[in-house]
Design a protein around this nucleic acid. Structure first.
Lengths: 205, 205
DNA sequence: CGAGTGACTATTATGGCATTTAGTCACCCC
DNA sequence: GGGGTGACTAAATGCCATAATAGTCACTCG
């Protein structure tokens, strides 16, 4: 609907700087408490004891700050998924845990940190780089699992890898993408198990 | 968000009556041209040459009229699907055509009759009976295909029928439900084929 | 020179008031 | 008596002036 920043990370000044971190921290708290819209850039400035103008030495726009927070939020989901996957023995189990953790973490974010969830959903809707990177990362994890399963002979190898991964990605998308997940909350409890089973059946050698 | 008519069709007076049909016809045209919100009940009354009050002898509310139009729209999709399925020889082919037709009809509605599409999406979001019935019907068609495939030995029979059908239904949902489909337009071209393949692999005996 | 800012503008949100609209009801009249 | 309606109300909606906000820039001061 509005301008789509195709890929620019939209940040300025030194990439690692004390003040930049302060801004991100303050933004994290304010966005989480009051939401993205109700937080003004002046609020953030006041919180860290600088002027609003100084914030713009570090970020291109308010949206850029939003993206930073969004990226942090989505990274937390990825981390949870990675941990769950790492703790599984077989590719089959990895896929199950991946799907389950993805959904439960997302749902939990929805109910426990709704304001941050809304930013993530908005970000997904607008195709912000943070959301794109997240989807891309999920897909990578999925690819790794499928590859491993193929190598160990647990999964079939006839279908081209790309095609397999892409199809599973399409199946997961409604639960990965925060914009879509919120419309699927009513089946979020059962979907991971049901769909994991279906996907695993399709992966049988 | 608002009141959810759990199952009442919300209509009054004689079920088949000339004037009722006139109302539905006028509503179809007006909603399609100007949209649901921009059409007033008085507009419809004027269009058929009666007073607004008389309309309420046939419909409980404006929403009830919306539901009638919505049901008509969704029935057209179902009809297209049924026709496509009927023209296929094998259950495999039926499933492919079902998915493909479902998506292409939905997408076509989105681009060619956006105003009616919006009503359908809203209806799905609010859980109107018309939308529920539509989803239920799609599920029935799917069940029939899977059952037939099992009987002919084309599909596996180990997994409980309900479970199989439910899982496939979950896969299709993002493309069946107008509320969700509009967020998946970017993959609507490829998804039916990719997902049909995945589902069929999962159905292999 | 570079960390930091007040003062400014163009755009966007807000809030309160006038208008519309959904829905009802008593009533008409063929 | 049943097909049909004008007049009415409460709630929703649109509208517009006003206030708030994102973002910039020339500037200061150490």
């Amino acid at each position: 609907m509005s301008q789509t920043p195709s890929s620019a990370p939209a940040s300025r000044g030194p990439a690692d700087h004390n003040v930049r971190d302060q801004i991100v921290e303050a933004a994290g708290e304010h966005f989480s408490h009051y939401g993205y819209e109700k937080t003004t850039v002046s609020d953030l400035a006041k919180a860290i004891g600088f002027s609003k103008a100084y914030i713009y030495k570090f970020f291109d726009s308010k949206q850029a700050i939003g993206e930073a927070i969004c990226a942090k939020t989505l990274c937390a989901i990825v981390a949870a998924v990675e941990e769950a996957v790492a703790g599984a023995a077989t590719p089959t189990e990895k896929l199950r845990r991946m799907f389950k953790t993805l959904v439960s973490t997302g749902v939990s974010l929805f109910f426990n940190d709704r304001k941050l969830y809304d930013i993530a959903a908005y970000s997904a809707g607008e195709g912000w780089p943070s959301a794109r990177a997240y989807c891309e990362r999920i897909r990578q994890i999925l690819t790794e699992i499928v590859r491993e399963g193929r190598e160990s002979g647990e999964f079939e190898r006839k279908t081209p890898l790309d095609e397999t991964v892409h199809a599973i990605d399409l199946v997961m998308q409604p639960y990965v993408n925060p914009l879509l997940l919120q419309y699927n909350l009513d089946v979020a409890e059962e979907a991971p198990a049901q769909l994991s089973n279906l996907v695993l059946r399709s992966l049988a050698p």
